[in-house]
Every structure is written in C-alpha cells, then in structure tokens.
Design a protein around this nucleic acid. Structure first.
Length: 428
RNA sequence: GGAGAGGUGGCUGAGAGGCCGAAAGCGGCGGUUUGCUAAACCGUUAUACGGGUCACACCGUAUCGAGGGUUCGAAUCCCUCCCUCUCCGCCA
C-alpha cells in the first residue's frame, strides 16, 4: 500500500512512476485524491460533533453531582439533538473510508526509478549471464515429463485421476528426489544464516491483505468453505512475511532472514492451455522460500544478497542458469524491483523462471503494520523482501532434463547425492 | 464437540458507568551522583488520523481482542464472533 500522505504531497510524481507499469493506473490516483478530500470534510464535521458531545457529557456528570439529577435534564436534551446529525454523518464516513482503503490496497507498488522500462518479459535484460556450460546431447533430449514417466518416478495420469488436471504425483525415486531437493535447499540456506520455519499453510483473510494477494488476486487463491474465511497459501512468502506482524521489532533484531519449505496452492485461472505438461505450472507444488525483513537503508543490498543465495543452489547443483532483471511492465504487484533466475530447459531450448526475488520496500509492511523501533525510539516500517530458493518442482524438472542420458537414466548432481542416497536414477 | 476462566500500553498487572489514554512495577530514554561499570535518586516514556506550524509547540477525534448494541457518557453493562488457558470427550 502506498502512503496516502505521499500521494497527496506528490500526486504527479506518483502517477508518472505508476504509469511505467500501466498507464491506466494514473486514473486511480486521481480517484483516491478526490475521495480523500471529500472524506476529510466529513471527518472534520464528525469530529467537531463528537467534541461537542464529549464536552456536554462531561458537564452532565458535574451538574448531576453538584445540583442533582433533575438539573441535568436540559443539557441531556441538547445532546440528544446533536446525536441525530452525528449518526447521519458517521454513517457517511464509514463507506467512504472503506472505499479509499480498498482503492489504496488495489494500487501496486511504485517501481524503483532505475529499473528498465518495458512492457513485458520480452524487455527484461540479462544481468548475470550463464556461466555453467549447456548440456550437449548426441541424441534428441526428452522433456522432463517423458523422462519421468519412462523412469516410473512421475505419474500424471494417477494425479489426474486423484485430483484433476495440473497435479503431479511423485513415486519411488521421484518422491525421494523431491524430498532430497527440499532438504538440500533448506540446509544450504540455514548455513547462510536463514532461520528455518515450518508455518501453517492455511491462513486468514487479513494475512493475505498484508502481502498483497488480496483484495486484487482473490481468483488465484484456494478459499476454504466456512467462517472465518481461510485460504491455502500460494507461497510461503505469505506466512513468513506476516510472521512478525504481531509485535514491534527492535532495530537490533534486523535483518531477519527466514526460510521455509511449503506446498503452494494456486488456481492458475487464466492460464488455460499454458504450460500444461509436467511440473511447470501446477495447482499444488513445492517451494522453498526466502524472506527478509530489513532496515530501509539496507534493503537493496539485501536484495542482491538474496539473489546470490538463490543462485548458490543452482551453482551447487551445476544446472545452467542466468539472471534477468524484470522491467517496469513485468514486476509483480508488491514489488519495487525484481530479479528472476531462469534455468536452462533443453527440451524447450530456452531458459525458464525458477526463482523470483523482490524488494517490496515498505509496501507490504504498511499493509500489515510491521514496524521497528529505531535507535531514536521512533517507529519505522521495515522493508520486506522475498524470493524463491527455489521452486522445487521446476528444479526437479531441470535436473531430469539437463542430466538425462542416452539410455534414459538420469545422473544426480553431486551436491544432492548425500540427500538422495544414489548417484543416478536407472532406466528400467 | 461439552463445561469453565480469561484477552488492558514494549512487558507484568490494577481498574468494574463520568475524576481513565488508563494505577503500580519492570523495561526504554534523559539527567544527578560516581575513577569505569553497577546501584541509588529525579524526570520522562502509546499509536493512528484530522487541524495547526517553516519545523516544533499545541488543539481535536479514535483506540483496553474484533464487530454490533444500551446510555447524555462505556475498558467497565448486553449481544455475536475470534483467540488463549484449564477440565472432559474424540483424535495423528
């Protein structure tokens, strides 16, 4: 959420920067400003009326004490009259406030001034080139679904029978490999100073407001039946970033670095026909997430660190990757600056996203009231960052595709062998 | 699922219709004393919004788990919900 005071103080600047995402967003800023001015007028009147009421009520107490109950009758009548207008005005106030809040919650974060300007992922520049050599095949490489099904470690038919399309079922060495990847990633991040968390994967509505999934992206979320409203998380970013909202942090605690494995649940509505094969885009998938809470002045350095931490996974697994910086038209709702790490997928002959690392500045923190007390004793919003470290299913797919052998077997990367227990998955 | 007890500031905890944004203690901050540290003593110490100011000051409004209600007036009374704890049942 953007700061309403900043919008009021500097509307043109804000419009300019938002229009780097989408030109239409400028109109929403005007709408907020108009509604806010109207709201303030009513607020002033309501507060004036309340002040009068409070003052008179106080005097009633005094009069009753000094002159007896009957003496207060007249003042009580007067207050009664005040209350009529008050009720009227207060009734106007509520919906207007809600409308403004809702508008503010629906406006995305300001992109950082220095990020590349562009419309789509086609405009994302490469910032770290690929240094791990691409695999060379003397045969036609298969895609990961074909490899996995041949090896008997992935079963999409069984998954479809159980749950429908866009679900995966891992079995035997497949299940073991998925588990090995998760453990490997978590251990690596814990060594780098992240605290491991295992959070609930069902969360309340207000938690989703905090990280920005609501109110705008409700259709992507699996909502549970019943009251109070609850949702399956679409990423561990949600519980991790919201984790400290209940208390005020102290400056000495920052930065806070968290990592967690969770399954992630996404409806993927609006992606029909896209990436329908294999592990690339499913309703349920595994992900290891990185989250940082940082002092404002350090958040961009922390973002660089996080991208390195995520890359380290691929370096150790020896999977070819490169890093791109997302352009203004491609960054996510809450983000001011985002790097994507993309792995090489031989079957598609291209790089594909496996991690997205974002600095959200105070955008999420303002939504959830997540603040720290600085050394002057003042409260400040923290900056929040999140990144995948990494998407597990896509890592699984990348391993199968990049390390497939002519005989159909798959070599396991050295770093993973202690976790997997074998150095290859044999062809049947 | 059933019965009961609770939810108050950074923390502990009092308050039971007006004198309460809220006692006291702890913690924090500033100061005095002190070779340093500690201790002692004095003072100070919630947040948001609106107005105001160059900026302070200051003024107003709201906030005692959340939302409604009663009342001239609610932390306090009533209703609904959420959460925590204890006991019982069930269960991995």
């Amino acid at each position: 959420m953007l700061d309403i005071k900043q919008i009021v103080a500097n509307p043109e600047e804000i419009k300019k920067r938002l229009s780097l995402r989408k030109p239409a967003l400028a109109g929403q800023i005007d709408e907020v400003l108009t509604k806010y001015e109207a709201y303030k007028k009513i607020l002033a009147r309501v507060e004036e009326l309340r002040a009068k009421r409070n003052e008179m009520s106080k005097s009633i107490g005094k009069i009753k004490k000094e002159q007896g109950d009957d003496a207060a009758q007249e003042v009580m009548k007067e207050v009664g009259q005040l209350k009529e207008e008050m009720a009227l005005r207060e009734a106007e106030l509520e919906p207007q406030k809600a409308e403004i809040d809702n508008l503010l919650l629906s406006i995305p974060n300001l992109p950082n001034e220095k990020i590349p300007v562009g419309l789509s992922d086609a405009d994302n520049p490469e910032v770290v080139p690929c240094t791990i050599p691409l695999p060379q095949f003397d045969f036609t490489p298969l895609d990961h679904q074909a490899i996995g099904e041949k090896l008997g470690i992935l079963d999409f038919e069984a998954a479809a029978a159980l749950s429908g399309s866009r679900f995966a079922l891992f079995k035997g060495d497949g299940a073991r490999l998925e588990r090995a990847i998760i453990s490997f990633m978590l251990d690596l991040h814990v060594k780098k100073g992240y605290q491991e968390i295992m959070p609930p994967v069902i969360v309340n509505e207000n938690i989703l407001l905090g990280t920005g999934q609501l109110p705008k992206f409700r259709e992507d979320m699996y909502e549970l039946v019943g009251e109070p409203k609850q949702f399956l998380v679409s990423t561990a970013e949600i519980p991790l970033t919201n984790l400290n909202r209940v208390r005020t942090l102290s400056e000495a605690e920052l930065p806070i670095k968290l990592t967690a494995y969770t399954p992630c649940f996404r409806k993927e509505s609006g992606t029909y026909g896209k990436d329908t094969r294999g592990l690339i885009r499913n309703h349920q998938f595994d992900k290891v997430e990185l989250v940082m809470l940082s002092k404002p002045e350090h958040s961009y350095e922390m973002l660089e660190q996080m991208v390195l931490d995520a890359q380290e996974v691929l370096k150790q697994l020896e999977i070819p990757y490169h890093v791109v910086e997302l352009c203004s038209g491609d960054i996510g709702f809450s983000s001011a600056k985002t790097y994507d790490i993309e792995v090489w997928m031989p079957s598609e002959n291209k790089f594909r996203e496996i991690s997205s690392c974002s600095n959200c500045l105070d955008f999420q923190a303002r939504r959830m009231g997540l603040r720290f007390k600085n050394t002057q004793g003042k409260l400040e919003y923290v900056h929040t960052l999140n990144g995948s470290g990494l998407a597990v299913g896509r890592t699984f797919a990348a391993i199968l595709e990049n390390f497939q052998q002519k005989d159909g077997s798959v070599i396991i990367p050295k770093a993973l062998r202690p976790y997997f227990g074998k150095d290859k998955i044999e062809a049947k």
